[in-house]
């Protein structure tokens, strides 16, 4: 491509089919590169104007989020730290009762699987009530839900009072 062709293109023809040729020419022709970059007053006008200024500083919002990250690698460490903290918290908050502590379990667990019926032995009803109370407590205690206890408590409810969920 000749310089006059390149300048004609730069000054207005702007046919995209020729764009790569012009680009190649401008890259190796210092005169045309100068013509392109600095050769007209429009460029000077636009550069002197510059971009419209921002109306407010956004750094505080950015810094707030960076603090949570602390370093570019924090995202790698965060999950491990979270797990460790969770484990420590669980050790501190869990009630001392565990399934391996048979002394804490009420004996007649099996009976709770069968809802009390009218006409049952009153002592058996009282026993059921104690078992249900224990399971309700176990399910709520320490914020941890024991699914086995919860299932027993639900199954022990009369059918009309079942949780709709």
């Amino acid at each position: 491509m000749r310089c006059d062709e390149a300048r004609r293109w730069l000054d207005g023809s702007a046919d995209e089919d020729m764009a790569e040729d012009v680009a190649a020419h401008v890259e190796r022709c210092a005169d045309c590169a100068h013509h392109y970059a600095e050769g007209d007053r429009l460029a000077g006008l636009l550069r002197s104007v510059g971009p419209a200024p921002m109306e407010r500083d956004l750094w505080d919002g950015i810094q707030g989020q960076l603090r949570r990250r602390r370093s570019p690698w924090a995202w790698l460490l965060a999950p491990a730290a979270g797990l460790a903290a969770g484990a420590l918290l669980a050790m501190l908050l869990l009630p001392p009762v565990t399934p391996s502590d048979p002394g804490a379990l009420p004996e007649p667990v099996e009976s709770a699987a069968f809802p009390a019926q009218a006409g049952d032995d009153p002592s058996a009803l009282e026993e059921d009530a104690q078992v249900l109370a224990w399971h309700a407590s176990a399910a709520a205690g320490g914020g941890l839900v024991d699914p086995w206890s919860a299932a027993i408590a639900v199954s022990a409810l009369p059918s009309g009072e079942e949780d709709p969920s």
């Binding site: 293109w9 730069l10 000054d11 207005g12 023809s13 702007a14 046919d15 995209e16 764009a19 790569e20 040729d21 012009v22 680009a23 401008v26 392109y36 007209d40 429009l42 460029a43």
Partner: peptide, 13 residues
């Protein structure tokens, strides 16, 4: 591509 930039700039100018 560079050519696309130059083309757009020429039209804009």
């Amino acid at each position: 591509p560079l050519g696309t930039v130059l083309s757009r700039l020429a039209r804009a100018r």
